[in-house]
Every structure is written in C-alpha cells, then in structure tokens.
Write a protein that binds this DNA or RNA. Structure first.
Lengths: 200, 200
DNA sequence: ACCTGAACACCGTTCAAGT
DNA sequence: ACCTGAACACCGTTCAAGT
C-alpha cells in the first residue's frame, strides 16, 4: 500500500476545512493564508500548490458555503411538497438560520470579499443551482395561486432579495430596537413574505 | 494670523477624504492605513493621533457614507411630498444609485467590515436618522392607503430590506442573466415595490 | 507532484523622541 | 497637541531547492 502521501494526502480539502475554522473563529478580517497553512500543519507556502492565491481559497470556502446552504434550503422545503406557502416560509427561515449560524461564511459569500466570482466555475454553478431551487418554489406558489402570476425568475429575485436583505440588515445590527423589541426575526420575515403572498 | 498648523490643520478630515479615495480606487481589500497616510502626505503613524485604529477610520468613512446616502435619499424624496407612492419609488432608486456609484463605500457600510458599529456614536446616530426618514415615507404611504396598515417600523424594515437585498445581490453579481437580460435594475425594484404597494 | 525555507514588499500598531 | 522614525509581529506571494 502507498505510504501516506507527503502529508495526509488531501491537503486541498484540509485547507478548506481549516479555512472555515479560522473564519468562524477570527472572522473575515482574521482569515489569513498563513494561519490556514499553520492550522493544516504545513508550511506557509504549501497552499500555493493547491490554490493560485488567497482569493482562490476564499472561492473554495464560498463554494462549500453555497453547497451547505443549498442542502439546508432543500431539506427545509422538501417536506412541504403539497404546501407551497409553507415552502416559502420554511425556505426563508432556513436561509436565516444558515446566515446566523455561519455569519462569516455568509459574509464571505455575499459581501464583495470574493472579487471575481465569475472566475470560479464551481462557485457560479452552485449559486445558479441554488437560484433555480428558489425559482422552483416560486413556481409552485404561483401554480397554487399563492403568488401572483409574473415571470417566475423576476418574482424569485424579488422574494429572495427581500429575505436576503432583511437578514443582511439584521446581521449588520441595522434593524432598529423599536422593531426588535417587539418582533423576532421570524416575525419580520413572515410579515415581509405576506406582502408578496397576498392578503385579503 | 496663525501659521498653518503642523500640516494643513485638519489632518483628520484629510485622512477620511484620502480613505474614500483609496477605497474607490483599490476597493475594500486595498484600503490600508499606510496608503491613506501617504496619500494625505504624513508619516504612517500620524493617523494614530486622530484615530484609535483602522476600525475607527473605517467607522468615520462609513459615517460619511451614511450622511451622503441620507442627503441623496432626502433630495430624491422631498419633491414628491404629495405623492407617497413616488416617494417610495424615487427613494429606492436613490438608494440603488448610491450603491452603484459608491460600491465600496456601500460595502464598507453594510458588509460586516466595521466590526463593532455600536462603539461609534456618530455612525449609530446617522443610521438611526436614515431609518427614521424611511419610516416617514412609509407612514405617508400608509396614510394615503398606498401601503396596508401595519406598524410603520415593521413595514419600513420589510420594504427597506427588500430594496437593500435586491441591490446587494445585484452588486454581488448574484442576479441571474435570465432576469438581467429582460429587466433593468429599476424594473426589478419597481416590481418588488409593487408587491408591497398593493395590486388590484 | 508536493512541500520547505529564505526572501521581498507590504501591513497594523506601539513607542520614544522631536517641535 | 501633533507628527516622525525605528521597531515588532504579522501579511501575501515568489522562487530555488529538496523528495
């Protein structure tokens, strides 16, 4: 059998994992390639054998984050295949949970830290796939009369944008205490979704 | 008359201005205290006479950004004192314009770069004031029957969140080409606002 | 193919010192 | 009060060299 490779054989994934760890411990500002290398037990220049530069590692971490988000979203929505309105609510809530439980990963995914996202095909692909999952939910809602007829992709951007924006403001501490004292984040999301879902 | 002070007498503001310049040229990742000092024509340690650390300079830049945003928002909305619906539309559009014309300032204001925003009273004050301006617009809309009755602050978070989220996703390159090929950012915002404004 | 160690040009921050 | 210059502990990135 092959003696275990130079190090543990899968440094690339070990670096991504170490990166996620550093990120959640020290935040976006505390994420450095040298710390990641140290945590993975290799020299500070070893990462360059697997990532072109720091941006490439960030892209890999963001891609993992998106995969995680997709999984959580899908798991939250799937049980309600016969109740589109509930899909919307639970999907939004799963998104909120992901953001609050993985704040720094969420920030790295959506806050301009990754500068040329189009250069990373895996990242583009999983974010496209996630958007398509949202579109599916929107279509189900429209078919059930829960959302008004309209181009589903347009409605998807509108609803996703709203959920995304409310959560972003919440993470940023930008939601006024006059609101937070009276409503939970879930209340706010439900209220916001109701605007789209229709009222009568 | 007093000989011009040690340098030009108002290094603090010169540093903020230099910071905004670096930011729009090199992005959030390219903003360093040493560059800012150099651009202002002082030694790399001079900024510490005016700012406790890099975060404090970032707070000052963010605060200036918020003041700018407030001014643009107010200017866009004020002409329509008799047309609340138009206030909503033009307010959202002013927000979008600010974000696209000052992407990096916008990112620094809303993307977790400023880590302890509560520690900077001027920042807290102007962001509070901006939110209150949004609430005013929302109230005018509710009084005119353009928005459904509800706690105005809650509606303000919902609508602001939506506008903020759509713009954030747009800046991040996260809006699908299947949408962007057919709709402008303004179209998307109008569609989104319509969800709240009511339909019949 | 995968990793190391020295090297370079940058950082943020501190501190003694100068006016 | 306001600023400088040396110093320290960090960065990202490159490159010759080792297995």
């Amino acid at each position: 059998m092959p003696a275990k490779k130079y190090h543990h054989g899968d440094l690339k994934n070990a670096l991504i994992k170490a990166g996620v760890g550093i990120l959640s411990k020290d935040g976006v500002g505390g994420l450095s390639l040298r710390k990641v290398a140290k945590k993975a037990g290799v020299s500070h220049s070893a990462p360059y054998a697997h990532f072109a530069d720091k941006q490439a590692l960030i892209a890999a971490i963001s891609t993992e984050g998106f995969k995680h988000l997709y999984t959580e979203l899908d798991a939250a929505v799937s049980p309600y295949s016969s109740d589109p309105r509930q899909q919307l609510i639970e999907g939004a809530w799963a998104y909120a949970q992901f953001a609050t439980n993985n704040t720094d990963t969420f920030n790295i995914m959506f806050s301009g830290v990754l500068e040329k996202e189009k250069d990373y095909p895996a990242f583009v692909e999983i974010s496209r796939k996630t958007f398509e999952r949202v579109v599916e939910i929107i279509k189900a809602c429209q078919d059930a009369g829960v959302l008004r007829p309209s181009p589903p992709e347009l409605m998807a951007v509108s609803v996703w944008g709203q959920v995304h924006g409310i959560i972003s403001l919440a993470l940023e501490g930008q939601i006024s205490h006059t609101v937070l004292d009276r409503f939970t984040l879930r209340d706010i999301l439900l209220f916001a979704l109701d605007s789209n879902v229709g009222r009568d």
